[in-house]
Structure formats: structure tokens, C-alpha cells
Design a protein around this nucleic acid. Structure first.
Lengths: 355, 355
DNA sequence: TTTTTTTTGTAGTACGTTATACACTTTCTA
DNA sequence: TAGAAAGTGTATAACGTACTACAAAAAAAA
């Protein structure tokens, strides 16, 4: 109708015929493989352009590469995840690869199924964001397809990893709060039903918190609230903390979204932040920076992490076999939800200002 | 090594041999096609399970369907986009289809390339979120692959669409503000360099604003600020509005993220919201609901829109050929960034209000 | 020269699946 | 009870690309 595009998609055979060469030769040009003369290359490329040829990934996938990689992400709502995806995307684009984001939904089963489905769909490589499950399970998959895990610590011979130094990052927050004068600092942890190992960021962060508390001689004040790292989970944790007789002076949530939940609980109860209670998060998602929230948090530069993960994955697709584990340094972003604890109740502001 | 997974992936031929039937029969069972007896079906399915067979999408794609659809999204950071994606995902999951999100990056060229690449990768259908470009361009693609556009109005015979009634939605905000007593209401519009047609949501919304203003007899007060629907664009618009001598009493930004930008500008200038200036957005993204922001906005129920788009797409994949255009009713979500204009507060308000 | 190596190009098959065409049964219809 | 229709299973040709062999030609070494 319109032009001819509806007619029939040109194949590599059409290209070969048009250029007057064999399909094998055309394929070589397409793949930039060994054994083509400059003239032939020019001739074939001209034919490709003239016919508007585009290789069909499905067909390529049956014998070679699809030039496509995927990142499995549990929840696209998470702003931090989308930052990571953007970083990966940029690196892939630079290397002429396509990135597809695979929203798996929550739960280990859903994620496992997604990974299988991606392998079925011929992905050349897969990046996982904070995957659940054991190292063995991950390794089994990684033996069959190039794989990089993001946000999960540790290493396997067949698996690259990129993570922030969550241990240090959690320590930064505790240092900051202690520096402000806090001694009773509660931590909102992420707990799952499954048997999660020590490599998950939530596990590393809670260890960082515990370690820092002990380092400051506050081992007695260690106060871990088990919850979920979601808005709802944070809200529950906040309510729980408020309901206790021995209320801490600061709450450190291991994830910004959960910290928002804590804040929501505090606002709902009429508690003033940071006058009556300091709150800090972790991730530095965009919303944290908005003026009326302006939350103290830890930045892990998701964009850089994404780029690093993309690069590692494409290296592996290209043939690298030894494992690389990258750890990026997080930085503290002090804002306005943390301040010195109120010293004397109502007159609290006096105590704070000269701190 | 570990189990046999590294050995060789079982194919449909292996399944057929194991079950003692032909590959054609096994394929029929796999596709749930006509012409298989219950016993054969059970037998083949048992073999599939026993061998751990998984069909290879690349191979399927060469003759039939890949059971995969994609949604092209310019920017995953946009919370509203991820809501749409989640809706689509749920519907796809329900129908045993896989959804992949394709982050195209900004710009029309990037989006066009992504669509082509997705077709190359054998997607059974494609959903576009607020696509740029003309109707003709979209139709050309839609002739070759089932396609649904999300957030763009209008219709083509080969194209389904799902959109909120942006015209009514914009009117709801104006009604609300006028009901509060506002008469000078500025609108922050989204303008692009390209030749965009009237079907884009931004075009429809601005028309809705204009129409509602006229309807309320406020045609003289129509005040459209050209900007970009981003945090930065909103901030610039906010500063611009503040710099003007004849300041409006309310600002309506056509998108929540832009409204955040406006708010940021106001906060930065020490303007109190809504005491000195009311602000409203459009989209009702999650952040708008957070207590310290609590922004008046319009909800388009992105989840429902996503589900609807997913359903339409899969119907088309299934063979429907007549176009369906769905319009969902948006609702006003009044919150705390809008209030009656200050009547007697500051001295300056006197002069302004009776204007 | 002749032999060996390198370069350049081609034939032809494999990849895993779908789907068309057909043969053989069984069940309905008249 | 013949004939038609419906049900059940198989053989086999695509689908578009990659790649292993191998042949032919050109270049280098002897």
C-alpha cells in the first residue's frame, strides 16, 4: 500500500541476490566476520541500505547472538531501579546492544520464571537487580548465560557483581547521627520470609549499622525494627516505634521509600521532624531531594552502578570468563530531617541551634 | 555438571521422542491447537515436564508467535509510566504473555528506532506510551504489527488507543479552582519543537483548560506558560510566573512532575502554598500524595489504563482487526496545595483579588 | 617455475519450531 | 449402509540466519 513495507520484509537472501553474492558472504558482512574484501563489503552494505534490510533477531538467535540483553527488575516503581536501568541502557546503547527491562513482579518464583523466560527469548546476557535466592541457584543460571548481579554483594566464578559499599554507607549515617548527639538510634530493617543469605544489601546494611553502633560504644542502644522496605512497611515500623515507651531519638531506615513510610507515620502522629525525631534513609531517590521532604540519606550513584553493570555484562558476552566484583563508594547526603536530639523537651530548639 | 542442565537443552523433538509421538503432535499440544486427544495431550505434557522442556522463543518467532509483547517507554523515571507498565504487565501475565519494557530514551528518532528493533526481535505486539510523530507514521508501523497507543487520543483503523479524558480532567481542575474563588489561573503547558498534532495529551489538556476558562467567563484570564513537563521545566515556569508583575492566584501544571518544579520555585522564593498561591497538577503520581506535599491533582488511574491497553493489544494479537478507542474518566483529587485565594491577608492581596 | 600459504568467496546444512497437507479412524447423517 | 463429517495423528516444507567445509584465486615462499 503505502510504500512497499507491507509487501515483504527483505531477508539476507534478498540482500545477497541484490548484491550479486552468496548469502554466506552477506552474512559475513553483516556480522563483520573474517574473509570479506573491502569491495564486497561496500557492495553488500549498499544493497542492505538500498533494500532497507534489517536482520531478524529471532532468526539470528537460533544460531548466534540476538544483540539484546535484559535487566530483571522486581518493581519499576522504585525510583532507584529506574536509575540503574538508565545507566545500563546508556552503556548498552554505546555498544550497539539493546536493553529490555523485564518487570518480574515480586517474589522469588516470579523472578526465577522471568529469568528462564528471558533465556528462552534468546537474551545474550541478563542483569539481575538485588536478586533473591541462593548463590548456587544464581550460579546454575550464570553457567548458561552471561550474568551480572546488581546490588548484591559477593562473588562466584561465573558471576559478576556491582554493589555499593552498603556496610560503609550504613556506617556513614550512624556516624552522622552520633555526631549530632544521638545515642538511641533505631534501624528499620528489611526482612523476608525466605532464607536469604548475607550477600543481600539489606543484610550488609544492617551489619553496617550494628558495627557502627558498637564502634561508637552504643552497642546497648542497638534497636532493629523488623519490617518491609516499602511505604507501607515503613509506616508500620514508624507506628511501632511511636507506640513504644522508650522512644529512640533517631530512626534510620535502610531504604528511602521505607523512610517515607516512617515519616508518614510521624506526620500522622503530629511528631515534628527533626525537632522531636530525626529520620534518615538510604538510596537518595529523587523524591528525597524535594524541598518539603529534604531527607538525609545515602547516595549510591545508581547511574554509575548501572553503567558499570552494563559494561561488565557486555564484556562477559564478549567472552570474558573470570569474575569481576565492583564496589562503589556511597556518600552521605545530609539534609533537613536530621538534627541534634531535643535536650530538654519543649525548650528543645535552644538546645538544637547551637549544636 | 550439576544436574544435566548444562548438557543440552531439550527440544520439541526430544519431547516427541520421549512421548513416542510425532513432533507435529508435540507442537500441537504445546500450542494447544486443534486435533489432539486427551490421552495424547496428557502423555506429551508429562514428557515435557519430565524433560524440563521449555520452548525457545527465537525458534517460535520464525514461524509463529513469540508470546512476548513490549511497551515502549521514553522515561522509566516517570512514576506514571511505571504505573501503566504495571497495569499492562498484570493483564499480560493473566493471559500467559510476557511483557518487556523498552526504555527508548527521549526524542522521536530514538523511539522510532526502538520500535523497529522490537519488530526485529519478533514482538507479537507493541504498546506505545504517548508516542511522538504523526498518525501516518504510527499507522505505517501498525499495519505490520499489532499496536496500541497509550495516552494519545484519536483513532486509526489499524490502531487501538487508551487515554484519559484529558479535556474533562483539565476542566475539573479549573472548576475546582474557580469554585474556590480563583479567577486568575495560569496554566503550565508542555511544548515541543516538533510538529505535534492535536491528539497528544498535552494538546488536549491545554484545550480543556482554555475551554473551562471560557466556560466560566474567564476568557480574559487565560494565561498559558510555555514550558517543558519536567522538574526543571516546571521550576523555570514557576520562576517566570513569580517574576511577573501581574501574578496569578493559582497555577495549574499539566503534569505532576512539572507541578513539583513550580512548587520548588515557590518554596525557593519563600512563597507560601496555598496561602499565597495555589498549585495543582495532573497525573496523581505517588509522590503527590506524600503528606508534606499533598498536592491537588487529577487521577487518571494508570493501572486501569495499563490493563485496558494490555487487553486491547492481546485482542489484536488474537486477530481483532477493527479499532477500539477507550477513554477513561479522570477524577479530581483535591488536597492541600489549593485553597481559596487570600482575601484579606496581606495588603497586596486586596489589590489583586478584586481584579 | 612449483609448492605452500593466505585470501576471498560459495554450497549447503543446522538451528527449533510452526503449519500445511494429507492419511487414517471413528462418528454422525440420510 | 453408504457417504459425509469430524476427530486424530504424521510427514515434511518452510522460517532467516550462522557457520563449517571446501573450492578457487591470489600471494608468498621455495
Amino acid at each position: 500500500m503505502s510504500k512497499g513495507s507491507a509487501d515483504k520484509r527483505p531477508t539476507i537472501v534478498d540482500v545477497a541476490r541484490h548484491a550479486g553474492v552468496s548469502t554466506a558472504a552477506a552474512s559475513k558482512v553483516l556480522r563483520d566476520a573474517y574473509g570479506v574484501s573491502p569491495e564486497m563489503k561496500a557492495k553488500v552494505q549498499a544493497s542492505m541500505k538500498s533494500l532497507g534490510y534489517r536482520p531478524l533477531a529471532s532468526a539470528r538467535g537460533m544460531r548466534g547472538r540476538t544483540h539484546t540483553v535484559a535487566v530483571v527488575v522486581a518493581d519499576l516503581h522504585n525510583e532507584f531501579s529506574s536509575l540503574l536501568v538508565e545507566g545500563i541502557r546508556r552503556e548498552c546503547e554505546r555498544q550497539k546492544y539493546r536493553l529490555l527491562a523485564a518487570p518480574a513482579g515480586s517474589g522469588k518464583d516470579a523472578q526465577d520464571r522471568m529469568v528462564e523466560d528471558l533465556v528462552d527469548r534468546g537474551m545474550d546476557g541478563i542483569i539481575l537487580i538485588s536478586p533473591l535466592g541462593t548463590d548456587e541457584e544464581l550460579e546454575t543460571v550464570a553457567k548458561n548465560v552471561p550474568m551480572v548481579v546488581l546490588g548484591r554483594h559477593g562473588s562466584s566464578p561465573d558471576l559478576d557483581s556491582v554493589a555499593a559499599d552498603d556496610f560503609t554507607g550504613a556506617g556513614l549515617v550512624v556516624d552522622h547521627l552520633v555526631g549530632l548527639g544521638h545515642r538511641r538510634i533505631a534501624y528499620v530493617n528489611h526482612t523476608t520470609d525466605g532464607k536469604n543469605d548475607a550477600r543481600l544489601p539489606e543484610e550488609v546494611r544492617v551489619r553496617g549499622y550494628v558495627d557502627a553502633m558498637i564502634r561508637h560504644g552504643l552497642g546497648d542502644g542497638i534497636d532493629i525494627v523488623q519490617s518491609q522496605w516499602s511505604q507501607e512497611g515503613g509506616e508500620e515500623a514508624g507506628k511501632l516505634i511511636l507506640s513504644r515507651p522508650d522512644r529512640p531519638t533517631a530512626v534510620f531506615a535502610g531504604c528511602d521509600v521505607a523512610a517515607f513510610g516512617v515519616l508518614t507515620a510521624l506526620w500522622g502522629a503530629g511528631i515534628r521532624v527533626p525537632d522531636e525525631l530525626s529520620v534518615a534513609g538510604f538510596d537518595n531517590i529523587f523524591t528525597s531531594s524535594l524541598a518539603p521532604i529534604s531527607m538525609t540519606t545515602v547516595d549510591q550513584s545508581g547511574l554509575d552502578m548501572g553503567v558499570a553493570a552494563g559494561r561488565l555484562l557486555l564484556e562477559r558476552v564478549g567472552g570474558r570468563t573470570d569474575a569481576v566484583n565492583t564496589v562503589l563508594r556511597p556518600t552521605l547526603v545530609p539534609r533537613e530531617t536530621t538534627a541534634a536530639p531535643a535536650a530538654t523537651g519543649k525548650v528543645l530548639n535552644l538546645a538544637r541551634d547551637d549544636a
